[in-house]
């Protein structure tokens, strides 16, 4: 039934992502024409323009694509694993821990002394959270143990972040922390792309093969385990993959909420509720969403630096409420 529609959906979403990626390259305060921009990107024309395109807009567009795909894919995988449409990637504690790492880097001055200090500290926070979650949930721990461990670590990391803000003797650092946590893709460089891309690659590679297992989990853990799913291995791949994706996304973009929750929700119906088909669709949908949001922050308030995370939450939350009401009406 839905089978012939799936390639069509993927093709449409891919086309949308490509169009938005180009749009992201072409829109900015410098007001360069499309032809000129693309020529500059390829190294023809004005040297200054080439610099703007290659050092400012290209990394921003690439990061929008990667961060969005990471959020969308993680959300789809986690919702499938937990069999819960309200799960979001932050649930296993990675984003809060990555944020704590970043906050510590800002507070200690590491980020100012060394340009990669912040993303590397965030990645270290994410890695620590994975080890803690896996240790707390135990080798045979069930889904509930995993969620509880994730919630505990999120709460602890959140408290750590608050403590840093609370005790911060320097109002500028506190200010910087607050703004960083709102999430943004502005003023990122190719260095950020270089840091995020390998972890993103690992994360995508770890999560991609989980699709069949997610499909089987539709009938519960026992049914999946007896039909050939190695639950322990699945959980390890899933936690490591989500942590690599969300850790590196948080490291380069701060906290961007609601994408990982809303995108799988929106696309679920289009893929016939199949958790396996939702994974690629949601990755593309997430990329499109973050690219749109990042274009929107540039268009809505040019020069005011409206934060990406603020916009996604501002639009995402009411939209999510609408979805819940719709779902309730249809009893889906």
């Amino acid at each position: 039934m839905t089978a012939p529609r799936q390639p069509l959906l993927i093709a449409a979403l891919s086309a949308l992502v490509v169009a938005l990626f180009l749009a992201s390259l072409l829109i900015g305060p410098a007001g360069i024409g499309p032809g000129q921009s693309l020529a500059a990107l390829l190294g023809r024309g004005d040297e200054m323009l080439t610099l703007v395109m290659r050092e400012l807009r290209l990394p921003r567009a690439i990061l929008g694509l990667l961060v969005g795909a990471a959020l969308g894919m993680s959300g789809a995988v986690l919702q499938g694993f937990l069999r819960n449409p309200l799960a979001e990637p932050g649930l296993i504690g990675t984003s809060a821990s990555a944020a704590l790492g970043a906050v510590l880097a800002i507070q200690t001055g590491l980020s100012a002394a060394f340009p990669l200090g912040l993303p590397l500290a965030a990645l270290a926070g994410a890695a620590l959270s994975v080890l803690l979650v896996l240790a707390l949930a135990g080798p045979r721990g069930g889904t509930l143990a995993l969620i509880l461990a994730g919630i505990a670590i999120s709460a602890l990391a959140g408290a750590g972040t608050s403590l840093v803000l609370n005790l911060s003797p320097n109002p500028f650092a506190a200010n910087e922390i607050v703004f960083w946590m709102m999430g943004s893709l502005a003023d990122r460089s190719m260095l950020h792309v270089g840091i995020a891309a390998p972890f993103m690659g690992l994360g995508f590679a770890a999560l991609w093969p989980t699709r069949r297992a997610l499909q089987a989990l539709t009938l519960g853990e026992d049914a999946a385990a007896s039909s050939g799913v190695h639950l322990g291995r699945l959980r390890l791949m899933l936690v490591a993959g989500i942590a690599a994706l969300i850790g590196s996304a948080t490291a380069v973009a701060g906290t961007v909420g609601f994408v990982g929750l809303v995108v799988p929700h929106v696309l679920r119906r289009a893929v016939g509720a199949s958790p396996a088909r939702l994974v690629p669709a949601s990755a593309l949908g997430g990329a499109a969403t973050v690219l749109v949001a990042d274009i929107a922050v540039r268009l809505i308030a040019p020069g005011r630096d409206l934060k990406l995370g603020v916009l996604t939450a501002l639009v995402g939350a009411p939209f999510f409420l609408h979805l819940i009401l719709k779902t309730r009406r249809e009893g889906l």
């Binding site: 039934m1 069999r83 089987a216 989990l217 009938l219 049914a223 039909s227 509720a273 199949s274």
Partner: peptide
């Protein structure tokens, strides 16, 4: 084990509104 025995757990959990055919196909994942 998946080739030796099929198991139907208690409670008939079906988490997502998937078509019948797609659920039957889950028997083949091993």
């Amino acid at each position: 084990r998946a080739h030796a025995a099929a198991y139907m757990p208690q409670g008939r959990e079906i988490a997502w509104p998937m078509p019948v055919e797609a659920l039957v196909a889950l028997g083949r994942i091993a």
